[in-house]
Amino acid sequence: MLASLFSRYPTFLVFLALFISLVVALVLTPGWIRFLKSRRIGQQVRDDGPKTHLVKQGTPTMGGIIMLLAVIIAILIVGYPTPETYAMLIAIILTGILGFIDDASKVINHRSLGLTPQGKLLGQFLIATIFVLIAVNALGIAPTLELPFIARINLGVLTTVLPLGHGIQIPWLYVLYVDILLVGLCNAVNLTDGLDGLAAGTTMVSMVVMAAIAYRNDMLEPAILAAALGGACIGFLWYNAFPANIFMGDTGSLALGMGLGCLAVVTKTEVVILIIGGLYVAEALSVMLQVAWYKRTHKRIFLMAPLHHHFEKKGWSETKVVVRFWIISGIIAAIGFSIYFAHSMLGA
């Protein structure tokens, strides 16, 4: 809407998207909290988690609904959505719906686990596969990976073309990589969402960096989407900071992870995103290593996984863990952006 009026000021549009999304989340969240409390819809805390988290039982959840609404409103007001924006936004919303079903199942059944892990993974892989096929066939995304300063890897060497329409290309290796990337980021952000403000704060940092990368690539609409996602995180963080008045739930964390992955595909940073989102990678790896090592030796590497709980067990306060993880996330994201920027300058 405003894109046509301020087309000469793209930087302003990106910041405006962040601001509008922030304000919408800031304004709508209190009403959503009151509604959830009136319906007694709250978080079910896991019994095997830190005992200090038991006080969080019953805290309103599914704040991700407001975050997604804030993003949609910001894009409709600021942007002039392109096919890339629609593809990413639909993938994000569908993943949010999957998370909402999971959250609702937890609330209805009064348990900390909602959908089965297999059910969630199946839904995530389905959404990721559809997105990557649209990206390759409709958006013209090349099935390649950029290894900064090293090489460009062609993952389209094993491609099947289905005789439908103008032909549907299925670059199997690229589809496999992107599926693992998107599903991995969904669940990594979800695992990170274990302390008040942790996922919202770290994702805000990552989204701001992705907005800068998209802008650097002259991709205004993806930059606006990334900025809107970052703004939603900031607005939500006002109520999610310790002690949290509301949690984003799987509705928010899964959607944010999908958004981060989709932006990486569109901006061709499918490898650099592993550095920018390095904190999520570390959180996910801590769980994988803990489970694998315990099955083999019946001993634990960490006092508790994911990684943030390990530091809680070591005596760090929740706020100390969150703030230090924010700092680490900012440092890692800055390193990732620097690598991307230097690579783009040398390749220009």
Rank of each mutant, 00 (worst) to 15 (best):
185 L>S: 10
185 L>H: 09
185 L>D: 01
185 L>G: 00
186 C>S: 15
186 C>A: 14
186 C>W: 11
186 C>K: 11
186 C>N: 15
187 N>E: 13
187 N>S: 13
187 N>V: 12
187 N>W: 13
187 N>H: 15
188 A>M: 08
188 A>P: 06
189 V>A: 06
189 V>E: 08
189 V>G: 06
189 V>T: 09
189 V>R: 05
190 N>T: 12
190 N>M: 13
192 T>I: 03
192 T>Q: 10
192 T>E: 11
192 T>G: 08
192 T>C: 10
192 T>A: 13
193 D>H: 11
193 D>F: 09
193 D>V: 12
193 D>T: 12
193 D>R: 14
193 D>I: 09
193 D>G: 12
193 D>P: 12
194 G>K: 08
194 G>C: 07
194 G>T: 03
195 L>I: 09
196 D>E: 05
196 D>S: 04
196 D>T: 07
196 D>M: 09
196 D>L: 09
197 G>N: 02
198 L>K: 05
198 L>R: 02
198 L>E: 02
198 L>Q: 02
199 A>F: 02
200 A>T: 13
200 A>C: 07
200 A>G: 03
200 A>E: 05
201 G>L: 05
201 G>K: 04
201 G>C: 07
202 T>P: 01
202 T>H: 01
202 T>A: 06
202 T>N: 02
202 T>V: 13
203 T>Y: 00
203 T>I: 00
203 T>W: 01
203 T>N: 14
204 M>V: 10
204 M>D: 00
204 M>Q: 05
204 M>I: 10
204 M>T: 13
204 M>R: 08
205 V>Y: 00
205 V>I: 15
205 V>P: 00
205 V>G: 04
206 S>L: 09
207 M>F: 14
207 M>Q: 15
207 M>A: 14
208 V>C: 10
208 V>F: 11
209 V>Q: 08
209 V>F: 05
209 V>K: 02
210 M>V: 06
211 A>T: 09
211 A>S: 15
211 A>Y: 04
211 A>H: 05
211 A>Q: 08
212 A>R: 06
212 A>I: 13
212 A>F: 13
212 A>Q: 11
212 A>P: 08
212 A>C: 11
213 I>L: 12
213 I>Q: 05
213 I>D: 08
214 A>T: 03
214 A>P: 10
214 A>C: 03
